[in-house]
Nucleic acid binder design. Structure first.
Length: 485
RNA sequence: GGCCCGUUGGUGAAACGGUUAACACAUCGCCCUCUCAAGGCGACAUUCACGGGUUCAAAUCCCGUACGGGUCACCA
């Protein structure tokens, strides 16, 4: 069987958004499902006006962070280079093929101005008619064309389509799609600045780079017949098409970088793990055949199947991503987890506390890395006293009960010589049975006294252990004082 | 407007003519429990946009309607 080659072909115009990244992921998976599959990165910078400085670097770093390693690309080379379209243009690749198309009668030189066509279109639309541009330049004689070119008149090269007949193609996801050639408009292949359009460059490069499977968003579904006409004109073999449904922000809108929604970088900045993000978006528009949701990238390669890609758009649900991120965090190897949270912990409380103990109370609870700072804030500095916190119906505690428990706790803890989780536990549980009350009657007030928060990661014993004996006793004393007033 | 595509619970979705319409997130209960989480258990679509048809049998096949999205750029 032929070697599968896919490509991710972004245009460097800004951040990488989630829909884009998912397309990259699917392209990667299609290739890497096969042991010798090749994933290519090609930069489509044919729109010189929209280029954004540094955008290419964002593409490199995003792919790298996600583990979507490309086998060929501008930065890693490969035998089908160059991999940047502006560089390919300098080699005259597109012009050459465009002229070949003209010679074959499948394209023609066009001198029409953009404004002219636009105004004709507006007139047609005002009349409620559908607009298919009928290019008068098709009738120009060779001599006249040559003369106008020699005169320096700007021109484009436009695809020539015979309006008779139909064109159809098989999409791996959407099935067979057939359209009437009369509905196809003759797209520009080469712009007046000499750059190819996406439409043209894409076809040329996919062929030249021996791409076997074209993975892209379904917004290209309706132009694919035109691309196939190009392949046919050149006598090239067509690739398999894998069009993906869109990733939506809500029922009506695609996810977009505008409005600041969900770009990969944003999510990482908000404390989401690249692995979790990737795993989650794999499930937006695709579902595995088994009942499972957590997949590493290599497991995805194995499980992925183009036939199970959906045809309808999927709404991006941050709640589910949160859940997935939390489960990645929880399932993480302890040492790795500690290294991951260390900067966040240090930022919140410095590095003077035992990070293993802190990690322990955090691991089951934090859903994103960014929550850590707020979760730990009480450790560094005791929050403001609030008497209402001591009243808890379920624990059957009141400020009075709490005051008594805290006095007793202060006494027994003060006598503790060894200060660790077990000793604190034994000490307080002994007090509980001595007083003949439920655990919560003692432990709940102590936890509140140590934090002045309604909710904390970890319980009284764990917090006391982290804070150390002196600080624990000081906080309890402070609480007794506050409660006494 | 023409053409193309889509439509299963709040969300992601399974099902490939015959199931009580999976599963996961969210939500809501209960249990566990020193709070919150985590974990355990349970509830949550008499129904698959709607209307016809085919069939002994339809969420699944066909046709139509509605609604939604895409496309019709010298943007990709």
């Amino acid at each position: 069987m032929e070697k599968v080659r896919t490509r991710f072909a972004p245009s460097p115009t800004g951040y990488m958004h989630i829909g884009n990244l998912r397309t990259a992921l699917y392209a990667y998976l299609v290739a890497k499902k096969h042991k010798d599959g090749v994933f290519v990165l090609r930069i489509e910078d044919t729109d010189q006006g929209r280029l954004i400085e540094g955008a290419t670097d964002i593409i490199y770093t995003t792919l790298k962070e996600c583990g979507l390693k490309h086998d060929e690309g501008p930065d890693v080379g490969g035998e089908y280079g160059p991999y940047i379209q502006s560089e390919r243009m300098k080699q005259g690749i597109y012009k050459k093929y465009a002229m070949e198309m003209v010679e074959k009668g499948k394209a023609h030189i066009c001198f029409c101005s953009e404004e002219d066509i636009q105004s004709q279109k507006e007139v047609a639309e005002a009349k409620g008619e559908s607009f298919i541009y009928r290019d008068p330049c098709k009738k120009l004689s060779k001599e006249e064309i040559q003369k106008r070119i020699d005169d320096g008149e700007p021109y484009v090269i436009r695809q020539t389509i015979d309006p008779n007949g139909t064109t159809s193609f098989d999409d791996e996801v959407y099935g067979t799609i057939t359209v009437d050639n009369s509905t196809l408009d003759e797209m520009i292949l080469l712009k007046s600045d000499g750059f190819p359009t996406y439409n043209f460059a894409n076809v040329i490069d996919d062929h030249l780079m021996a791409i076997t499977d074209v993975v892209r968003g379904n917004e290209y579904l309706s132009s694919t017949p035109k691309y196939n006409l190009l392949y046919e004109a050149m006598g090239w073999e067509k690739p398999r098409y894998i069009h993906c449904p869109p990733v939506m922000k809500d029922e009506h809108h695609k996810l977009s970088k505008r409005n600041g929604d969900a770009s990969f970088n944003d999510l990482v900045a908000k404390g989401y793990l690249p692995e979790a993000i990737l795993n989650y978006i794999a499930l937006l528009g695709w579902s595995p055949s088994e009942e499972r949701e957590i997949y590493s990238l290599s497991e995805l390669c194995e499980a992925f199947d183009v036939k199970r890609i959906n045809t309808s758009g999927a709404i991006f649900d941050i709640e589910k991503l949160k859940w997935m991120n939390a489960t990645y965090l929880r399932n993480m190897d302890n040492d790795k987890y500690i290294e991951l949270i260390r900067p966040y912990v240090n930022k919140a409380i410095g590095d003077s506390y035992d990070i293993h103990k802190v990690a322990h109370i955090l691991k089951e609870r934090a859903t994103t890395l960014n929550e850590i700072e707020e979760m730990l804030d009480f450790i560094k500095e005791l929050k403001e006293f609030d008497v209402t916190l001591y009243t808890n119906k379920k624990m059957k505690t009141t400020p009075e009960v709490a005051l008594n428990s805290l006095k007793e706790a202060k006494r027994v803890l003060g006598e503790l010589s060894e200060w660790n989780h077990d000793s604190i536990y034994n000490c307080l549980m002994a007090l509980v049975s001595e007083l003949g009350v439920k655990n919560g009657q003692v432990l709940f007030p102590v936890r509140v006294a140590l934090s002045n928060k309604a909710f904390t990661p970890g319980g009284a014993i764990e917090i006391a252990d982290i804070l150390g004996k002196e600080e624990t006793l000081n906080r309890i004393a402070k609480a007794i004082e506050d409660l006494s007033e």
